[in-house]
Simulated assay, not measured.
Amino acid sequence: MKSALCLCLLLLGLHVQGQQQEQQIRHSPEDRSQADGENLSYVKLAPRNAEFAFKFYRQIRDELGDGNIFFSPLSISTVFAMLTLGARSNTLRELYKGLAFNLTEMEEQEIHEGFQQVLQLLNDPHREVQLNMGNALFVDNQVELLQNFLDHATNLYHTEAVSSNFQNPPEATREVNKYVETKTHGKIVDLVKSLDPDTVMVIINYIFFKGSWEKPFKNFNTRDDDFFLDAKNSVKVKMMHQKNYFNVHRDKNLSCWVVEIPYKGNVTSLFVLPDEGTMKQVEDTLLKETVANWLRSLKERDIYLDLPKFSVSGSYDVKSLFKKMGVTEVFSDQADLSGVAKNLPLKVSKVIHKASLDVDERGTEEIHLSEMVKVVQAVYSWLQKVPEVWHMTG
């Protein structure tokens, strides 16, 4: 078996297409125009988020080389989109550009409403898959957030605001870790090792996904097999097997196979199998247009499907990656986040994104976590004999 590339990005575009199909079935012709209008924001959001996803993917690939890559662009873009509620001036413009938003094509209100609708759809309790997504804002009890920022973060981004005592670092650390452990169903414990007493705010975004294959693999068909990392190197893995009907596409231009493996419910995954020596070629052309073409070209075929059982995880310094993508001011002393807190200049000092994925015969379990560490620093430090430094960590 040749090296396989798994599109483990939580691609909003795939979700939106399926949701639109459901709505077309559910609504009568008279209601359809109204439904289309109501959902216009999140439909417009999908291609932008996909564009950001592949741009971020290429940035990680260029930095890591041949290492495994697994992350959720939706988790990252949601956190930074929420932050734009309090960003101003050039800081705001850089954030929107980095997230692939063009304000001449999509207004700010549409962006925020789009994320609000996506969060509502993803947290639908009637889904057959288990999917939870949300945000938490831990704020030092001595910090006064601006009411407009707090209201919009709560209403548009499903954000829980929690008053914390960061003057007692061990207590605050336990509080944050307990929250994360609960929201990730016990899969992530002790996320934050310590918080210093200068901490004033921690922002957390979490996604927990657990889905069962629509066509599960049988355990007795799983056996040891070779998985080729490249032309010369291979490892022994537990390979799952089944013969069944799946949607498949052969991309002759990119020399790869694409197979769609659906979950129960309105969720699907794409797995890409490049021909030997063509992995980089496929990665270089990973764009939203490429995936859209694959989706249009899928055809059902009876195939023998071999898929390895595997676990993959990733941890990324988003600050470093964003700066290479041209988003710099929000991390500097020139950051304008004046719409977040009252009389308290802020900048982002650190952003860590963590994700894990387990794939077996029954389905997959994914966890995505964006942990933001921020610094509050006196911008006009020359007015003071000794600049006062505040830390916002998480």
Rank of each mutant, 00 (worst) to 15 (best):
residue 1 M to E: 04
residue 16 V to C: 03
residue 29 P to H: 03
residue 32 R to T: 08
residue 36 D to Q: 15
residue 36 D to T: 11
residue 41 S to C: 12
residue 42 Y to M: 14
residue 46 A to R: 07
residue 50 A to V: 00
residue 52 F to P: 04
residue 54 F to W: 14
residue 63 E to S: 15
residue 66 D to V: 05
residue 71 F to K: 04
residue 74 L to Y: 13
residue 76 I to K: 05
residue 80 F to I: 07
residue 86 G to I: 00
residue 93 R to Q: 11
residue 94 E to K: 08
residue 97 K to W: 02
residue 98 G to A: 10
residue 107 E to Q: 09
residue 108 E to C: 06
residue 110 E to F: 06
residue 113 E to H: 12
residue 114 G to K: 03
residue 120 Q to R: 06
residue 134 G to N: 01
residue 136 A to W: 08
residue 146 L to I: 04
residue 147 Q to A: 14
residue 152 H to M: 01
residue 153 A to I: 01
residue 161 A to W: 09
residue 165 N to W: 05
residue 166 F to Y: 12
residue 166 F to N: 13
residue 176 V to I: 15
residue 184 T to H: 04
residue 186 G to R: 02
residue 188 I to V: 09
residue 188 I to T: 00
residue 192 V to H: 11
residue 193 K to Q: 13
residue 194 S to L: 11
residue 198 D to L: 11
residue 204 I to E: 13
residue 207 I to W: 07
residue 208 F to T: 05
residue 217 F to A: 10
residue 218 K to F: 13
residue 224 D to T: 00
residue 226 D to Q: 10
residue 227 F to R: 04
residue 229 L to G: 08
residue 231 A to F: 11
residue 232 K to G: 07
residue 237 V to K: 06
residue 238 K to L: 05
residue 239 M to A: 07
residue 239 M to R: 00
residue 243 K to R: 12
residue 243 K to V: 09
residue 243 K to L: 02
residue 247 N to L: 05
residue 262 P to G: 07
residue 270 L to R: 02
residue 277 G to C: 00
residue 278 T to E: 09
residue 286 L to W: 12
residue 303 I to E: 00
residue 310 F to Y: 15
residue 315 S to D: 06
residue 320 S to C: 12
residue 327 V to P: 01
residue 328 T to W: 04
residue 331 F to S: 06
residue 337 L to E: 06
residue 338 S to N: 09
residue 341 A to Q: 03
residue 344 L to A: 06
residue 348 V to M: 14
residue 349 S to A: 08
residue 349 S to F: 02
residue 352 I to D: 15
residue 352 I to L: 15
residue 364 T to C: 13
residue 366 E to P: 01
residue 373 V to I: 12
residue 374 K to D: 11
residue 381 S to D: 15
residue 390 W to S: 11
